[in-house]
């Protein structure tokens, strides 16, 4: 009987609907069907490490048209407290769409150095 109960416990542990607390070696929750239980987890994954080219905004020439902000596919351009357009390098993949779209060409870029 005890053996049977243990087997049952083992069964639920690997596949229970509600997440049982098991984690992979790297700390990722081992959920049923690999679903993610909490929103916003993509923030944890910093895609900025993919970058080959690093864009830089020349604030003195920026006209604040927001075209870079609108066209960034990773929402990696943000407006800081002073109203300046800035690049969030944690998530910027360096696609350079912002540089291409900038009407006054104030976004330059260079090869990322790490």
């Amino acid at each position: 009987m005890a053996k049977k109960e243990k087997a049952k416990e083992k069964r639920t542990a690997v596949s229970a609907s509600s997440y049982s607390g098991e984690k992979t070696a790297t700390g990722i929750p081992l959920t049923c069907g690999a679903s993610i239980l909490t929103p916003g987890t993509s923030k944890v994954y910093k895609t900025g490490t993919w970058r080959t080219f690093k864009p830089e905004i020349d604030q003195s020439r920026c006209i604040k048209c927001a075209k870079c902000w609108m066209s960034c596919p990773d929402a990696a351009i943000f407006i800081d407290k002073e109203g300046k357009y800035q690049v969030n390098y944690d998530y910027c993949k360096g696609c350079l769409i912002c540089a291409k779209e900038c009407p006054v060409k104030c976004i330059s870029y260079k090869v990322e150095e790490k």
Partner: peptide
């Protein structure tokens, strides 16, 4: 009870899901 379905798993995770 919102969840994400069909998310991607990196080499550090995929393996364990297959094991499960």
């Amino acid at each position: 009870n919102p969840k994400t379905f069909g998310a991607f798993a990196q080499p550090n995770t995929y393996f364990e899901f297959k094991e499960a």
